[in-house]
Amino acid sequence: MNVFRLAGDMTHLLSIIILLLKIRATKSCTGISLKTQELYVIVFLTRYLDLFTKYISFYNTTMKLVFLGTSISIVWYMRYHKVVKQTYNKDQDTFRHYFLAIPCFLLALLIHHEFTVIEVLWTFSIYLEAVAILPQLVLLQRSRNIDNLTGNYVFLLGAYRALYLVNWVYRYFTENHLVRWIPWLSGLVQTTLYADFFYYYIKSWKNNEKLQLPA
C-alpha cells in the first residue's frame, strides 16, 4: 500500500469520524443528507460482499467493517434517535434515491469486468459512490448556514477520492501497468463533482469567512 492510498483511507475515515462527532456531540444532523448517507450504506453493503469470500489483509477487513458499522449507525441516528431525527432537514433533502441507484445498476449490468453477482454489485457500488454525494451537495446549496463540521466533513469526503486518483496513477507506474477503467473513470467523475464545493470551501477558508454556496 502506498502513501496516497493510506492518506485517502485516513481522510475517508476522518470524514466519517467528524460526522459521527457532530451528530453525537451536538445531537444534531442539520445540513446532513440522509439520502446520501443511505446511499453510502448501499455502496458499502454491495462492495464489501467479498468479506465472506476473500481475505486480503487484517487492515482491509477491519476498515470494511468500520465503514459498514459507521455508515449504518449514522443512518440509524438520523432516522431513529429521538433528538437527532428532529434536526433532520427533511423538507430540503428531496433528492430521489432511485434517480441515482437505478441508472447506476443498469450501467453496472452493461459495463463490468465480469458477469458475476459479486462483480456486477461491486461495479454498481463504484458507480453509485461516484454520484452518492449529489443529494448532500444539493442540500448544502439550499442551506443558508453550513456549520464548520459539515463543511469539513464534505471536504474530507471529496479529498479522499482525489487522493485515490493519485494512488491509481502511482500504482499504474509502480505496479504492472494495469488498466482499471471502471474505478478510474468513476473516481474522476466523483472528484469532479466536488470541484465547485472545493472552490468555495478554500475561498471561505482563505478569507476567514463562513462557508456558503451560491444558490
Partner: peptide
C-alpha cells in the same frame, strides 16, 4: 490493454 479485477482497495 489489461484489465485488473484485483480488489485490494476499499
Amino acid at each position: 490493454l489489461q484489465q485488473d479485477s484485483v480488489k485490494d482497495e476499499l
